[in-house]
Simulated assay, not measured.
Amino acid sequence: MEFRVDRGDLVEAVAWAARALPARTPVPVLGGLLLEASAGRLSVSGFDFETAALIETDAEVAADGRVLVLGRRLLDICKVLPDGPVSCALDGSRFTVEGGGTSFGLSTLPREEYPAPPAPPGAYGTVDAARFATAVAQVAVAAGRDDTLPVLTGVQLRLEGDEITLSASDRYRFAVRRLEWKPEASAPSATGTGEAVEALLPARRLLDVARSLARCGTVRVGLDRGPGPGGPLGFEGGRMRSVVRQLDGRLPGYGNLFDMAGASVAEVEREALTEAVRRVAVVAEANSAVRLDFSADSVLLRAGFGDDVAAQRLPAVLSGADEVTVAFDPAYLLDALTSFEAPGLRLELLGTGRRALLAAAHSPETHRHLLMSVKQLV
Results as ranks from 00 to 15, higher is better:
V282Y: 06
D58L: 10
L347Q: 10
T338K: 10
L377F: 04
A331N: 11
G40I: 01
F305K: 15
R355A: 15
R250F: 08
T108V: 13
C78V: 13
V378L: 02
D64P: 10
E341P: 09
R368Q: 09
A119C: 06
A187F: 11
P364R: 04
D83G: 14
E113K: 13
S189C: 14
V219Y: 05
M372Q: 12
Y332D: 14
R4D: 11
G31D: 09
V80P: 07
V97T: 08
R245K: 14
E271Y: 03
G101T: 04
S298V: 05
L35A: 03
L333F: 15
R171M: 11
R178G: 01
V176C: 06
D6K: 10
E184S: 13
S167K: 07
R173G: 00
S295A: 13
E163A: 11
G84L: 01
V324I: 14
G99I: 13
E56C: 01
R41T: 15
V44M: 03
L149N: 10
V280C: 05
R313D: 11
A281W: 01
R368L: 07
A18G: 12
I77V: 14
A303L: 07
P232V: 01
D307E: 15
D297Y: 01
L149T: 09
L223W: 04
A89V: 08
R239S: 14
D147N: 13
P364S: 01
A52T: 07
G122W: 04
